[in-house]
Write a protein that binds this DNA or RNA. Structure first.
Length: 489
RNA sequence: GGGCCGUUAGCUCAGGGGUAGAGCACCUGACUUUUAAUCAGGGUGUCGUGGGUUCGAAACCCACACGGCUCACCA
């Protein structure tokens, strides 16, 4: 990438010229009296000619000899500014040293042009930052996807839509906090560096602490620490935090992503189910002012109550297979073959079932749906279903064909939890399953002090934002998605 | 990691063996209410990188890099 070409050399020359005139092209501060939006609103509301000082990035120049219009944008929006030679005198010539992309401060009074646009008539202006690189083209903007992600600031400058997506993301997270805080939840911050990566089935990133001379893992879930807080007496606790999983990258997976986890003492997964649909519809209504969203050409309605169906019935409906009647690997595999279904080899019964589900059921779950009652093999941290000990009280929420939440009645029996961990260790040893849970003695010790019956929830924030913004790729809702580092030179 | 597609000016894109192109941006000039301002003039380039084929390669072949989609893994 030629960092210094003709255009940037011209701009460096302008920079030198500005300095030679005794002007600091990067002054320390500027007093704004209004944002662009406020200035326009003030003029329209009061029908006067208020004196204002505004600042922002120059987005366009329209010069007509001794008069110039420029468009200036700040985060509130665009405003047009009008520069006249006979108002500004010699200073008008200084405009020649300004370029699209520069940050400018301007003062003057508001008026309306002949064509009706509310405009700032400038009587003084100052450079606030000189831009040395040309901005993307004004009409088409930036469409090179790689460049959009690597230089997201350019994407944000040139695309209102991208700007909107990340504004929605921010508002959605704020709404989640508001919802939970109003219900009496406390927000916690638990460690990112874990001595053992637990709380989910996933490969972790590893790192090393030099002073402790100890290997550490980036967290794959916040679960086990948040449960310690429930044991510590925080009856309602949550964390919105970055999770790291050392797995493939796709339109639905980024190695680091944001998850909400909440835990509520004395609640079970039925209570959590109600809270989940209320939470999501609250967020949707607050952020978009409606509960129906358009996603991938269809309409998704988040209004509670959502569909509820057991995993068993869902799989039976789509695949004709009752997994409880095919409770071992060979039986389930044979049933899949018998019905002519196409499911890849999997290392275990549970993974085979998971595969069957994600291939034949998940893509159909467009409207918000709770899939309930998972096999105990797939859920080492969930409490058994009292009606069928092969199952646990667990649900996953789906919308738009994606999993957006996972929740269960938490296993709080320390003896059984130890047995479940040991089962996972067996899977790891037998099948080389690197994602299996490890026995976490520190967590087991905490459980032995007694954890109240608790309902836990995990929500994939990125995927929720995808649904709210009608984006089919997770990279479009993450400001700086993971890309391979480009070789320099 | 596999398959398919892409990479040409600052940006958006044409060009598919014979002198490197357009629009926007930029530069020069005109213009005191324009708004994708207009008018006249000016191409500013390692055609992703490295090899190969050829009299001649941006183009054809091979390898590599980066990206997109997809499959595998997962949430």
């Amino acid at each position: 990438m030629a960092r210094i070409d003709g255009i940037t050399e011209q701009r460096r020359e302008k920079l030198r010229k500005i300095r030679s005139l005794g002007i600091d092209p990067f002054p320390h501060r500027y007093h704004r009296s209004h944002t662009n939006k406020e200035a326009i609103a003030h003029f329209q509301r009061d029908d006067c000619a208020p004196q204002v000082s505004l600042a922002g990035r120059i987005m366009a120049f329209r010069t007509m000899g001794k008069a110039t219009f420029i468009d200036v944008r700040d985060s509130s929006g665009k405003i047009q500014a009008y520069f006249r030679s006979n108002l500004l005198g010699d200073k008008y010539e200084l405009l020649k040293e300004f370029d699209i992309g520069d940050i400018i401060g301007m003062s003057g009074e508001m008026f309306r042009t002949h064509s009706g646009e509310v405009t700032l008539k400038v009587n003084d202006f100052v450079i606030l930052s000189k831009s040395l690189q040309p901005l993307p083209e004004k009409w088409h903007g930036l469409t090179d996807v790689e460049k959009r992600y690597r230089q997201r600031y350019l994407d944000l400058i040139s695309s209102e839509e991208v700007n909107r997506i990340f504004t929605v993301r921010s508002r959605a997270i704020a709404a989640i906090r508001r919802f939970l805080n109003r219900r009496g939840f406390i927000e916690a911050e638990t460690p990112v560096l874990h001595p053992a990566a637990g709380g989910a089935l996933a490969r972790p990133f590893t790192t090393h602490h030099h002073a402790l001379d100890q290997n550490l893992y980036l967290r794959i879930a916040t679960e086990l620490y948040l449960k310690r807080l429930v044991i510590g007496g925080f009856d309602k606790v949550y964390e919105i935090g970055r999770i790291f999983r050392n797995e493939g990258i796709s339109t639905k997976h980024n190695p680091e992503f944001t998850m909400l986890e909440s835990y509520e003492a004395y609640a079970d997964y039925n209570n959590v189910m109600s809270m989940t649909e209320e939470l999501v519809s609250y967020v949707t209504k607050n952020v978009l002012r409606k509960t129906k969203v358009s996603y991938a050409g269809t309409t998704i309605d988040f209004t509670p109550p959502w569909h509820r169906v057991t995993l068993r019935d869902a799989v039976r409906e789509q695949c004709k297979i009752d997994f409880l009647e095919h409770a071992d690997y060979d039986s389930l595999r044979d049933a899949i073959q018998h019905y002519g279904l196409n499911v890849d080899e999997s290392p275990s019964w549970g993974k085979l079932l998971d595969k069957l589900f994600s291939t034949y059921v998940e893509p159909h779950l467009i409207q918000p749906t709770f899939i309930m009652d998972y096999p105990v093999e797939l859920s080492p941290l969930a409490k058994r279903n009292p009606d069928d000990e092969r199952l646990v009280e667990r649900f996953e929420a789906f919308a738009g064909g994606m999993e957006i939440a996972n929740a269960f009645t938490e296993l709080n029996d320390p003896i059984e939890q130890r047995e479940r961990f040991q089962e996972q260790e067996k899977l790891r040893a037998l099948l080389g399953d690197e994602e299996a849970e490890r026995v976490d003695e520190d967590f087991l010790l905490a459980l032995e002090y007694g954890m109240p019956p608790t309902g836990g929830l995990g929500v994939g924030i990125d995927r929720l934002v995808m649904l709210l913004t009608d984006q089919q790729s997770i990279r479009e809702v993450i400001l700086f998605p993971q890309l391979r580092t480009k070789q320099v030179g």
